[in-house]
Design a protein around this nucleic acid. Structure first.
Lengths: 147, 147
DNA sequence: TAATTTACTTGTATTTTGCAAGTAAATATA
DNA sequence: TATATTTACTTGCAAAATACAAGTAAATTA
């Protein structure tokens, strides 16, 4: 999307009609594409925080798509963007509570792929723990994210 | 996608490179778009089974997109397509076990929207039950889907 | 002070999506 | 039996999104 004036971006977004009020539909309006959840995955499970880190993920997202998705994630308040205090040229992207709350969904996605995708790279120990005590796993990951 | 020869569609799909072996990435290769999960939602929670029913959902999917997504869902073995025994001109689409196993993920999506989307149409009773006894809710919905 | 790093923006080609219209087979109606 | 209707699509085209390459500006490092 071409943002002519950032100040009115929120306004534009507000006007951009949601397809319906269905909870699944409105969620897909935010992350229903091939890239958004991969950025969230990188923050959630791989500890990535910088633009360059996302850019160098193994799926090789294009730089303009990355910039677009980071902006829409920030707009949706799923992530927050701040100047890196120890390096003024860098921005740190981190999950908001709303973003962290996507964890249970992502865990279910992982479990589904682990069950049906023969070539999945899902971590066996992760899957085992999720099947044995999901609440504990979720809590452990959340604790790691707070910091 | 333009399918020149349906017999070789599977072959084409096999060649179509997955972006990575990450379980989230491969899942998004299948349902990472604005429409696929809405079709699954219609089958899962609204009991829809016919092409025309999906077409008339409130989000108004385009007919060519619907045809494309039904084909890719069938290819992914998330749904099965059969002639309607009581009406030879109609096809019945139904979820496979693999499709039904997307239920936990969809419930998490609903809960996330219910928590953060002020205008969500998520059913309050559904949300309440999911928060109180998720396993029971999942089991109940699965029972309703078996038949 | 110059080179490098970081986080982008811009331009363009390709692909996907959205919309309208058309079609073919099966079924329902006259 | 002939005609109309329903169902599940396909086709064509315009618009939007995506991918890729190149360029840029601010901050940092050498």
């Amino acid at each position: 999307m071409q943002v002519i004036c950032p100040k009115f971006y929120f306004c534009m977004m507000a006007l951009k009609k949601r397809r319906s009020d269905c909870p699944i539909s409105t969620a897909l309006d935010v992350f229903g594409d091939k890239w958004t959840l991969l950025i969230i995955r990188d923050m959630m499970f791989k500890g990535k925080r910088y633009y360059g880190e996302f850019l160098n993920g193994e799926e090789k997202i294009a730089t303009n798509i990355l910039a677009d998705r980071l902006m829409s994630l920030e707009q949706a308040e799923i992530i927050h963007k701040n100047v890196d205090p120890s390096h003024g040229a860098k921005f740190i992207y981190k999950l908001s509570p709303k973003g962290i709350d996507l964890l249970p969904m992502l865990v279910e996605v992982i479990l589904w792929s682990a069950k049906y995708d023969r070539k999945t790279a899902a971590d066996a120990l992760f899957v085992e723990q999720a099947l044995k005590d999901k609440d504990k796993l979720l809590k452990d990951i959340r604790n790691g994210l707070q910091r």
